[in-house]
Amino acid sequence: MTTNTTTFDIPTEPYGKVGTWWFLASEIPTFGAILVAYIVMRLGSTGWTEASHHLNFNIALINTFILLTSSMTIVMAHGAAQDRDFKRAANFLGLTVVLGLGFLGMKAFEYSTEISHGFLPSSGMFWSFYYAMTGLHGLHVVAGIIINLVLWIQATKGTLAHHIHRVELAGLYWHFVDIVWIFLFPLLYLA
């Protein structure tokens, strides 16, 4: 007697990708809460526009170009890793790290200028929000740089071949950090 068994291929997403998206989902309320609080407080108050005029717009604009460009370079790194061209992947990962460091360097210079002019987190509600939002974002940039640096080391040593998907996951995180800045820039510097 023979029995016929039927097997089904259940389509599933890779665990790493789902896990990364879960993590990003937890980040959305984190940044969302502070952005919403900023928006409603600013709409209900006066004097915030004047305070924002003390920010260094030019540095923020350059940082916007830097971060958007780094999003492009990490996509290129992922593409190169998929092609198993690890030298090219390493180059683009390294460029992403350099751009991230450039962003932090510019931000540090901006902070130092503002602090030297007496604008501290305690200088008013606008400044409290400004340092909280950009500081939280900056910490995420630091984390992204560390992740990309680890991948760069793996790519240069040739050990990335077994973990190509990690470049995609790191990219997802890096793009999320980029999207947060896409909203921080107009909220702080253009509004």
Binding site: P29, G32, L35, V40, S45, T46, A51, G124, M125, F126
Partner: peptide
């Protein structure tokens, strides 16, 4: 969606009760 609900819920409280900067 939760963030948007949060924004809509918070909006009237702050916008119609102006606070100091």
């Amino acid at each position: 969606a939760f963030v948007i609900i949060f924004l809509i819920g918070m909006f009237p409280d702050f916008v119609y009760h102006a606070t100091k900067p």
